[in-house]
């Protein structure tokens, strides 16, 4: 599951950037690029969110500076 989600994450990032590169090369229309980027965005947040939920990486997030300013 972890590998699947990770692959899905990478795939979504490729899907996010490749269409804009293709648009720069003149191979895609802007409307298609916008649609593909939106799909990639949904895919990224779903896969990364699930990855965090399943593998527990979210617990790793916590502000480093919490104790620093309060001294």
């Amino acid at each position: 599951m972890r590998n699947l989600l990770r692959s899905l994450g990478w795939l979504s990032l490729v899907l996010l950037t490749a269409p804009s590169a293709a648009y720069l090369a003149g191979w895609l229309s802007l409307e298609t690029v916008k649609l593909l980027m939106l799909i990639a965005t949904v895919l990224w947040f779903v896969s990364a969110g699930l990855n965090v939920k399943i593998n527990g990486h979210a617990d790793r997030a916590h502000p480093m500076t919490e104790g620093e300013l309060t001294q």
């Binding site: 996010l16 269409p19 804009s20 802007l30 980027m37 965005t41 990224w44």
Partner: peptide
């Protein structure tokens, strides 16, 4: 903390969206 976690998830996506702004606008 929840938003911080979300920010961590969003960071790679956001960097690449900035890149796409540049590529699209160049065209």
């Amino acid at each position: 903390k929840t938003i911080s976690k979300f920010a961590n998830i969003a960071a790679p996506w956001m960097v690449l969206v900035f890149l796409t702004f540049g590529l699209i606008t160049l065209r």
